Computed example of a mutant assay.
Amino acid sequence: MEQYFVDQRIENSQLILDDKEQYRHIITVLRHKVGDELYFVDNTRKLFQAKLVDIQPEKAIFEVVESKLSMTELPVDVTIACSLSKKDKIEWITQKATELGAVKIVFFRSRYSIMNWKNNVVDKKVSRLQEIAKNAAQQSKRRVIPEVSYLSDLDQLNNVSNDLKLVAYEESAKEGETSILAQQLQKVGVNSIIGVFGPEGGFSNEEFQSLVDHGYQSIGLGPRILRAETAPLYLLSVISYNYELRMNEE
């Protein structure tokens, strides 16, 4: 069944959907009829199964019951921070990182970024990416819509408070480093992780050293050199295996 996010708390057995855009999409575009069932996630991250019971000119009324389906979020909060790249790659990263469980997606400008955003277009571009994240979260049955943001300066990542701070560095892969990431993910008490990824041209030496000086651990992502849009998805997949699939086997 389809799933949608509503910006309200569902506190009883009835949901009145009067958001114009959602009403248009569900009733006018998809032509749902009385008796159809959907899922809604409220602003407390609770999932509800809903049955459409009445359609009025500007609102739809649903009977709802809290769902007992399992939580779909990663056991750890993961932030993916990527240097700016071409529009299609940024949109791809946003969509796929959402599907793989990221709770925050950050884009930033670095020395070798092939794209730069002027100040007057930042809000529009972030809004577009936020909509992509919302749609991907609904499609993948997430309980959380990732927050998408933009930083004009890489140094703004220096003082984040994540428990585990990782920076992907292609020189580590070239040197055959394959175990540091696995070692870092075995640490006890990790509730939040940030992974930082440079552009196709990599970080400058000064940028990389600044991140390391502020607590980031340099990691390789296997023996192959990955494209800028592939690397964050690799990390999210490894985190999913480590905290979801592997743990469920034990």
Rank of each mutant, 00 (worst) to 15 (best):
residue 217 Q to R: 15
residue 240 S to H: 12
residue 244 E to Y: 10
residue 29 V to H: 04
residue 83 S to E: 03
residue 175 E to C: 11
residue 180 I to M: 11
residue 150 Y to A: 03
residue 9 R to P: 02
residue 52 L to G: 05
residue 147 E to H: 12
residue 64 V to F: 11
residue 250 E to R: 10
residue 201 G to K: 10
residue 42 D to E: 04
residue 117 W to D: 04
residue 110 S to A: 12
residue 33 K to H: 12
residue 66 E to A: 09
residue 82 C to N: 12
residue 189 G to F: 04
residue 153 D to K: 15
residue 16 I to D: 10
residue 159 N to Y: 14
residue 157 L to E: 00
residue 179 S to D: 13
residue 78 V to W: 01
residue 91 E to K: 05
residue 10 I to R: 01
residue 115 M to Y: 10
residue 32 H to K: 10
residue 147 E to N: 13
residue 69 L to R: 12
residue 4 Y to T: 10
residue 105 I to F: 06
residue 2 E to S: 15
residue 134 K to E: 11
residue 9 R to Q: 07
residue 9 R to F: 07
residue 102 A to Q: 01
residue 236 L to R: 05
residue 104 K to Q: 03
residue 190 V to C: 12
residue 190 V to H: 02
residue 33 K to I: 12
residue 48 F to E: 03
residue 52 L to I: 08
residue 108 F to T: 04
residue 246 R to G: 09
residue 143 R to V: 01
residue 90 I to S: 08
residue 179 S to Q: 14
residue 85 S to P: 01
residue 62 F to L: 09
residue 8 Q to R: 11
residue 34 V to S: 08
residue 85 S to K: 03
residue 9 R to Y: 01
residue 175 E to N: 15
residue 238 V to T: 15
residue 181 L to M: 06
residue 118 K to T: 15
residue 196 V to S: 04
residue 228 A to R: 00
residue 208 F to Y: 14
residue 70 S to V: 12
residue 66 E to N: 06
residue 19 D to H: 11
residue 152 S to M: 05
residue 172 S to I: 15
residue 66 E to M: 13
residue 7 D to K: 13
residue 231 A to Y: 05
residue 64 V to L: 10
residue 160 V to D: 08
residue 229 E to G: 02
residue 138 Q to T: 04
residue 47 L to C: 03
residue 88 D to G: 14
residue 132 I to K: 00
residue 193 I to M: 04
residue 16 I to G: 12
residue 172 S to M: 13
residue 212 V to S: 02
residue 48 F to W: 04
residue 80 I to D: 03
residue 35 G to Q: 07
residue 189 G to T: 10
residue 169 Y to N: 08
residue 48 F to C: 08
residue 75 P to W: 01
residue 32 H to S: 11
residue 221 L to R: 11
residue 98 T to C: 14
residue 190 V to P: 00
residue 151 L to T: 05
residue 110 S to L: 02
residue 93 I to D: 01
